[in-house]
Nucleic acid binder design. Structure first.
Lengths: 119, 119
DNA sequence: CTGTATCCTCCCTGATACTG
DNA sequence: CAGTATCAGGGAGGATACAG
């Protein structure tokens, strides 16, 4: 199969996954089904409130995740993957698998280089 | 299937595809098999020499593409996808398909919104 | 608890000129 | 032809404070 470069839609898909925290946020939501804002903040080490909000909004804008607000005090907001968002599953799985293999690939490359130098 | 967020390798794969011109460069090389530097520059509208060089180097560093220099004057350099780089094929194809569908999804969403407003 | 609002820094990208 | 060098702009991301 050949994708016509001029009609390339890869960048569109890429743009939606790109963002420092998006993959890990998606994986958490996929694993737990639903997470509150505070749960995500706790589960994603190092993220700030601002960035968590921003990345969630961007995913919501693309219909990948759903935001449900419970009108109560204190506030409660739950996030979850949408049915549509599930269509990203195979892509994320494929990327995870490729990434895992690539880590091994790089290690082998490094090993080879080190061996050559010490000889 | 559940990817453990803590062991997430999605970002590694993502990092390799990210770069303003990488997807289209890869698609051109996949389509034509081999391309000279000047051919790529001509085929990728808007790219500068500096960026083309940079993106190519990054892909080369990850063993996705191969660079062959012919020692002659004027210089001739050919780029091509490596055997290993071909392993990205299914991912790019999946992303292209998803992206194509997503474009439709967004159009439908926009249509709906417009219809609601005019009522 | 779930966000905004500012301010600030870094680095990706672009424009342009130069080189073997 | 196939690059490298330099300078500059903008936007993503981070720190911190404040708000409903």
């Amino acid at each position: 199969m050949t994708i016509e470069p001029e009609l390339c839609k890869v960048e569109d898909a890429l743009g939606i996954l790109v963002g420092k925290w998006k993959p890990i946020i998606l994986l958490h939501l996929m694993k737990h089904g639903t997470q509150r804002f505070s749960e995500l903040k706790r589960n994603v080490p190092g993220i700030t409130q601002k960035m968590l909000t921003k990345q969630l909004r961007e995913l919501e804008d693309e219909d990948i995740i759903e935001r449900v607000v419970y009108p109560q005090v204190p506030p409660k907001v739950e996030y979850s993957i949408t049915e549509y968002g599930r269509s990203l599953d195979p892509i994320l799985a494929a990327m995870h698998e490729w990434g895992t293999n690539h880590t091994i690939h790089k290690q082998q490359k490094l090993m080879k280089k080190t061996t050559e130098q010490s000889s």
